[in-house]
Design a binder for these strands. Structure first.
Lengths: 232, 232
DNA sequence: GTAAAACTAGACACAGTTGTCTAAAACGTC
DNA sequence: GACGTTTTAGACAACTGTGTCTAGTTTTAC
């Protein structure tokens, strides 16, 4: 896989974001350009220019376009993954107001995992190149943001165990929660425009309200919680 | 816009799917290739080959690549649009079992508008080329499947008027309904694999069940309908 | 300060694409 | 069968992109 004459300095730690400023700069520029133009449309010259680096330097570090592409994908996925788990850890152990806590959580999730540059990049790339690079898709699913689903499912299982939610199928609930959060953002995210903070807030509120109407634990009397039905 | 020496026969009715078999064949092949490779990655040679037509014929009909691309987009959108309205018209005026009717409706919608070749093409293209061709995105929204939302909202308004649903914001409910239907299909549709008929059925059932838990009209007693809570 | 490593700029061969052009072939119609 | 149109196959110029090479410059490390 790795050619012997990679002139990459001593610090050739695979694609892990390591040391060298140029390497980093190339990675970032490449992410930008690949995202804008797709794999076929992106040219090494453009990437080099955006990274303020000579074309030869790009080739020194990444040997060929294909190689650079997979390095970028790995890098973005690593970052997205770290971000995801940092956000998951913010959910309070004992939520005192489930609706507010879930909404705040949803805002963080959509702001930092879905609507940010990395989220956009991954969505676009998996969509347009996923068929051509099946391993890309698989990586996205198992090791990248595709994991959001399983992580969320675990969170919901915890909440159900505390009798705060009433859920049969945790994975399904997780998928639906994400889908609902996305429902109001799709237009923005499809187009590429970053939604405002207000839009994020609204989208989260709408999603959580509907989600809780469907999944909030019923009170002991068996009817839906008064607070949820009251607003209608 | 239109060059005077378009050698297109007498039947130059813009891009409306008209007459000439070659023209049709080119349009279909181009849709296929653009979808697979994106705009930059698709070559006229490949399109011509897939259409079983000489390259020159492609140029005779569509003058240049850009032109062919927009013709394909228009064509696919027209078809998707027609399909959407044909499906909307199948929803019964007086549903006797809302859950079943909505589920059947969701199956038809996802099979024929979301998971089919045209749906895939449009999603992929809007996603990857929407930023470069803003008019494409705008067209998709106003004149293509972006309209599903408003059409659905109208349907839900009707159902709410008949006291079958209890909805504040019809547009929101429509977006959420679509999002829920997509929730289980995203993996398949992202990857490009056609889901099986069973998967469609399941996705629709899951979506409708959650949707109705959130939006079904409460019975006169004020509690959620017994049938909906019973299953849990 | 010096030597090794990293970087730059430019030229280069090669391949692929777009869009044009031409002459010959196939087609449809009267 | 003859005419006009459509289609084809191939050659073509212009361009763009990839990946290599070289020679010179800058940076870094000792």
């Amino acid at each position: 896989m790795r050619s012997p004459n990679d002139t990459v300095p001593k610090t050739s730690v695979h694609s892990q974001r390591g040391q060298c400023a140029k390497r980093l700069s190339i990675l970032d520029a490449a992410a930008e350009v690949f995202c804008r133009q797709g794999f076929a449309g992106a040219s090494i010259d453009e990437i080099a220019a955006e990274a303020c680096v000579s074309r030869q330097t790009v080739y020194n570090h990444y040997r060929e376009k294909e190689n650079l592409f997979t390095a970028v994908v790995e890098d973005v996925m690593d970052r997205a993954n770290a971000m995801l788990f940092s956000i998951l850890s913010t959910f309070p152990e004992n939520p005192d107001n489930l609706e507010d806590d879930l909404a705040a959580f949803a805002v963080r999730l959509s702001r930092n995992c879905i609507c940010n540059q990395d989220g956009k990049f991954l969505r676009r790339l998996v969509q347009s190149e996923g068929e051509r690079y099946p391993h890309l898709f698989e990586a996205w699913r198992q090791h990248g943001p595709g994991k959001i689903g399983t992580a969320l499912a675990a969170l919901f299982a915890r909440l159900a165990h505390k009798n705060l939610l009433q859920i049969d199928d945790f994975d399904l609930a997780a998928r639906q929660f994400l889908a609902l959060v996305n429902a109001d953002l799709q237009m923005s995210t499809l187009f590429g425009a970053k939604p405002t903070e207000d839009e994020l807030e609204n989208a989260a509120r709408n999603a959580v309200r509907t989600f809780l109407r469907a999944y909030a634990a019923t009170t002991s009397s068996g009817s839906a919680p008064a607070i949820l039905l009251a607003g209608r």
